[in-house]
């Protein structure tokens, strides 16, 4: 129990509560547009950036962010060149990110860094600066999404109608990718690069089973994400488990419970 009282765990909890809002919030837009793979791709690019940050010495979140941003622009570019084969561009960038990361890992071998920490999360390394970065990104994401919610809904629901209503569709596409890149890079230290896409997509999967309206679906993803991150971190803290993995398993447990509940409910009703 002492671990929960410790400074680094409190930091992890605060950071977790921040990404528990933003990651599922961006995830719902990606999932509804059938672009969940973008989250996965950006996070693999971010892993490479974080690895480079450690090789150079510091600012892993910053480098992760830069790599994820570069990847999000590259996706848009490639998407235009391949049009109907969008997932091809994702596959290329995803493997490119992992390839780079693996090279950086071997370069940084003497730096006594642990590849596991990028891949699966490493809450013990969270610094106060990381927390401030997370807070800044969270505030920015909430302001931008709040301001553009109507446009984001329209483009998510019906991209053609958005275009005919005169909305700058490609600007919105870039906005979504950039915000996702931001959210992923702040989430890596807590849930890890390989698991961050679960925090983007599983809350959305839960909300698709429950929500009747778009408003509800946004409230549900944030609620599910938040509860899962807090439960996951507490369980991980008490039993000394990997934080990222525990959070993701809690998310999956939620999804299974909802599925089960729906089955039972539809049988009685």
């Amino acid at each position: 129990m002492d671990i929960i009282m410790s400074g680094f765990f409190q930091r992890a909890l605060i950071g977790g509560m921040l990404i528990g809002i933003t990651a599922p919030l961006m995830g719902i837009f990606l999932v509804l547009r059938r672009l969940s793979m973008i989250g996965d791709t950006l996070s693999h690019a971010a892993i490479a950036g974080v690895a480079l940050g450690f090789v150079i010495g510091d600012f892993p979140i910053l480098f992760g962010l830069i790599f994820a941003l570069l990847a999000s622009f590259a996706i848009e570019k490639l998407r235009k060149s391949y049009k109907s084969y969008a997932e091809l561009s994702l596959a290329i960038i995803m493997s490119g990110g992992i390839a780079l990361a693996s090279i950086f890992f071997t370069l940084g071998r003497d730096l006594s860094m642990d590849a596991n920490s990028f891949l699966f999360g490493f809450i013990y390394t969270l610094t106060p600066i990381d927390l401030w970065t997370m807070l800044g990104v969270t505030v920015a994401v909430l302001l931008i999404v709040g301001k553009h919610l109507h446009g984001l809904f329209l483009i998510t629901f019906d991209e053609e109608a958005a275009s005919v209503s005169g909305m700058p569709v490609s600007y919105y596409n870039i906005l979504i990718s950039v915000l996702t890149a931001l959210v992923i890079s702040i989430s890596i230290k807590i849930v890890g690069g390989l698991l961050v896409s679960a925090l983007l997509t599983i809350p959305a999967a839960c909300s698709l089973l429950l929500a009747k309206s778009f408003k509800q679906s946004i409230m549900i993803v944030v609620l599910v994400g938040e509860v899962a991150v807090i439960c996951g971190l507490l369980i991980a803290g008490v039993w000394n488990l990997a934080a990222g993995g525990t959070i993701v398993l809690v998310l999956i447990a939620f999804l299974l419970l909802i599925l089960l509940g729906r089955n039972i409910f539809s049988r009685i009703a």
């Binding site: 059938r34 709040g146 919610l149 109507h150 809904f153 329209l154 629901f157 009747k212 309206s213 778009f214």
Partner: peptide, 30 residues
């Protein structure tokens, strides 16, 4: 358009869809 191929699971009410056709300045949080 002739046919909207929308995802049957898409969480949006009829009201939300119709309101999404409104143009003009938007309030915060839609």
């Amino acid at each position: 358009p002739q046919r909207n191929n929308l995802n049957p699971l898409f969480p949006a009410t009829v009201k939300e869809v119709v309101l999404s056709g409104l143009s003009g300045k938007r309030k915060w949080f839609g």
